[in-house]
Nucleic acid binder design. Sequence first.
DNA 1: ATTTTAGTTGCGAATTATTCGCAACTAGAA
DNA 2: TTCTAGTTGCGAATAATTCGCAACTAAAAT
Lengths: 136, 136
Amino acid sequence: MTRQRQVIADVLQKAGEHLDAAEVWRRARQQLPGLHLATVYRSLESLKKLGIIDELDLMHYRGTGHYYEARTNKDHIHFTCQRCGGVLEIQTSLFEKLKAQIEGRHGLAIRVARLELGGVCGSCASTENKTPHATA
Amino acid sequence: MTRQRQVIADVLQKAGEHLDAAEVWRRARQQLPGLHLATVYRSLESLKKLGIIDELDLMHYRGTGHYYEARTNKDHIHFTCQRCGGVLEIQTSLFEKLKAQIEGRHGLAIRVARLELGGVCGSCASTENKTPHATA
DNA sequence: ATTTTAGTTGCGAATTATTCGCAACTAGAA
DNA sequence: TTCTAGTTGCGAATAATTCGCAACTAAAAT
């Protein structure tokens, strides 16, 4: 564990949510001015393998990049509204059940689970044809 | 619906599974020699919006690219073995229940659901430290 | 405390993957 | 038919990510 990785993990822990590599870089450089973007990518890769962070793409609502977040004890589901871009985090015990069922049935070990949903959120459904109100 | 999109959709329907944009292009050019890769990207985007195909990244087991497959009536789950790279497709009614529960609880409409799992498959778990046997 | 060593970093260049701008074309509506 | 909105081919451009390499550093071994 190098200082770089600690800072990067810390940025994600404090941020709460959904930073892309470039944004992680911007924030981490406040503690580590010389930090190189390539190091951010390499560190994100390691932290991902260590199970400390998770990677998302939020249904590619903007571009093809990826987003990162600190992993919490309970996995959560990400719903991205394809109308307004808002992201909703969802938790339910059914998700845990589903994973357990799959592990049992197929004799495999799940190390990372990513459930991403896309669709139309409640407020966009009621507010038809209105200006999108971003929340990402 | 242009000829290009028909051919591209067809390639994915026949392929069964998991082609990246470049591979779709290679196959589609057999019917449409002049087809441009940019058109493949644009068509995949449209077909995705139409709900005809789905996009995956298979836990980025190889590179950052994306994979596409024809959508079937029942969504399925993709498990990628992070040891051997094999991909397992899983179907279970619990997944449908989960989606229904989320729609009900949060008052939203799910248009696309992508559940990707990563971990160690049964045969890799039993065959510890052996040569990876690719299956992707 | 010092040495060793495996792994990491900064750097800039390179590679992938994807998107864009634009003029020519085409599917389908009128 | 004619019109029109949307699509295509093209090559150039732009992300997003990875690489090669020499200098460093954390942690294990002495």
